[in-house]
Write a protein that binds this DNA or RNA. Structure first.
Lengths: 135, 135
DNA sequence: TTGCGTGCAAAGGTTTTGCATGGCA
DNA sequence: TGCCATGCAAAACCTTTGCACGCAA
């Protein structure tokens, strides 16, 4: 689907995700947030808009680990070519964005030695963060 | 749920996954495979059995990247405490199991320097494999 | 015999689709 | 004005649950 027209709904959905750039949001949460902002947008429009934003590369889509619904997250244009990695804590769900030289090295190693070119946009490392281990 | 009794259905589901140990299978595919083998097993039983196998650690569960259904994959008992990592090719869907010293080092680094203890059972590195890049 | 396991059908939740109407360019 | 976008409702899916019967131990 091509984003031909510019509409209130599209702006609102994108703004909603951008305002929460460090979170992954389910469609449910997006709708709730829009309602709270006073925007009344049909659920199917939200689905269609998110899919379109995904195709445009403005948003990325995540299959939820627990539960059944899909989540979306904003991708800032400044992050587009940014080499950073995502760590997700399986205890608290927090996402850390990490610039880690060792990770870059590892990815280079996988490409060179294993012939496997990793995609740091899709790859997520799951584990337990410091706060959760201590608390 | 505890696996108290031993039944034809449980054996069949486990055998089906074991025969395809390098693939992730949706419930749909498991049912199809069982039907092909002449096994007639109710869908809810397949769901319940897969969940039970998951709880038992015999199978692991994956949120599907594309599509909306969950997938399952056999875990051999020999892999149970095995330190290996999963690379998934986003082009062909193949899973490679890798014993990579660099990856182990990276995980140790994340624990030591970032306070984040990764879980190699849940972590999957996405990218494109050699065959898909060349073909 | 006991009580877990199974299968059917129904319920529950999420996502997609059809269609008439609305609104951008 | 021409078409894409929207919203509603319905359909399509996927998964879970309730319940009566079957079967392993």
């Amino acid at each position: 689907m091509k984003q031909a027209y510019h509409t209130r709904q599209k702006s609102a959905v994108l703004a909603c995700l951008e305002a929460r750039k460090n979170q992954t949001l389910t469609v449910e949460r997006v709708c709730d947030a829009l309602t709270e902002s006073g925007e009344k947008i049909g659920r199917s429009t939200v689905y269609r808009t998110l899919e379109a934003l995904c195709a445009d590369g403005k948003v990325s889509r995540y299959a939820a680990e627990e539960g059944r619904s899909v989540s979306y997250r904003f991708i800032g244009s400044d992050c587009e070519n940014d080499e950073h990695f995502h760590l997700i804590c399986t205890a608290c769900g927090k996402i850390c964005h990490t610039h880690c030289h060792e990770l870059e090295q590892l990815f280079a190693h996988l490409a060179a030695a294993h012939g496997f070119v990793p995609d740091n946009r899709k790859t997520v490392i799951y584990g337990v963060c410091e706060a959760c281990r201590n608390g």
